[in-house]
């Protein structure tokens, strides 16, 4: 197969980037998209052109490192598939392919197709955990969890933190990522104590990072490689409203009866 690639090249965060075009021959249908990028890099090295930098690691769809917008869609045209699990057989011979980095103010480009996603880590730092020490713990079967609840929590916890939701959202919103973590912990009995503080703190951090707002487009859900449902966004909204309007109210102190 022959492919015409248009790839975003940018030396570093401050440099001005642009799309560069490359013709690539010798692509086979059984190559993964990243193997096609490897082939491009081999070719570029042969021509003494610096290879294209891109994040990748596990190449089996779970680490969340790979992050390419392929022909306008995060992780490309296959649904529920990361870029590393996208195969060239889904493209035609002679296809023109546009490869761009995640675009978000909160994800500055580091180089070429790599972006800085530390904003996600900071959202987790704001409350995406159950406060804990390592040491003796209660017997886990002493707190039964309904399997449906555990499964739904696992649906949310399947988020791989790749950032496709942000890249896909026309508003660059991180609601799906944040909602997935808030819901995972907020649904489980272990996560109840911090539930309302968590949702407030995590969403506050999300705003500070410069992500956009949710307009219920559902692009995030459609382009999420793990197919995480926007139902979790609704759930987070509900928790957030409760947290802001009702839940953690100071009800201590004396009262007047007459």
């Amino acid at each position: 197969m022959k492919i015409k690639l248009h790839v975003w090249r940018q030396e570093n965060e401050k440099a001005k980037g642009k799309m560069e075009s490359y013709d690539l021959d010798g692509v086979t249908p059984d190559m993964s998209f990243l193997e096609m990028m490897d082939l491009l890099n081999e070719k570029l090295i042969g021509e003494s052109i610096e290879p294209v930098a891109f994040d990748h690691d596990c190449r089996e769809g779970v680490c969340g490192a790979c992050s390419m917008v392929v022909n306008g869609e995060a992780h490309g045209p296959q649904r529920e598939t990361t870029t590393c699990q996208l195969y060239m057989r889904h493209f035609n011979d002679g296809a023109e392919i546009y490869v761009e980095p995640w675009r978000s103010a909160a994800f500055p480009v580091v180089r070429d197709l790599t972006v800085d996603r530390s904003a996600f880590d900071r959202i987790i730092q704001a409350g995406g955990f159950i406060s804990n020490h390592s040491g003796p713990k209660p017997e886990p079967n002493s707190i039964p969890i309904e399997p449906g609840v555990a499964e739904t929590a696992l649906d949310a916890a399947s988020c791989i933190g790749c950032g496709a939701c942000v890249a896909a959202c026309p508003n660059g919103s991180a609601m799906l990522f944040t909602a997935a973590k808030v819901s995972h912990l907020g649904m489980l009995p272990q996560g109840q104590t911090e539930r309302y503080d968590r949702v407030k703190n995590m969403t506050t951090q999300m705003e500070e990072e410069g992500f956009g707002s949710c307009r219920n487009y559902a692009e995030c859900e459609a382009q999420c490689p793990k197919g995480i449902s926007i139902a979790f966004i609704g759930r987070m909204n509900s928790d957030y409203l409760k947290a802001s309007l009702a839940e953690p109210v100071d009800r201590r102190g004396k009262m007047h009866a007459q």
Partner: peptide, 26 residues
Amino acid sequence: LSDQNKKARPVDYVKKKRAAASPAAL
């Protein structure tokens, strides 16, 4: 919100494609 959203994506994609959003939403 719209102002926040514009700031959230200072550089837009060269190639754009929507996978789910309806024209009504967009």
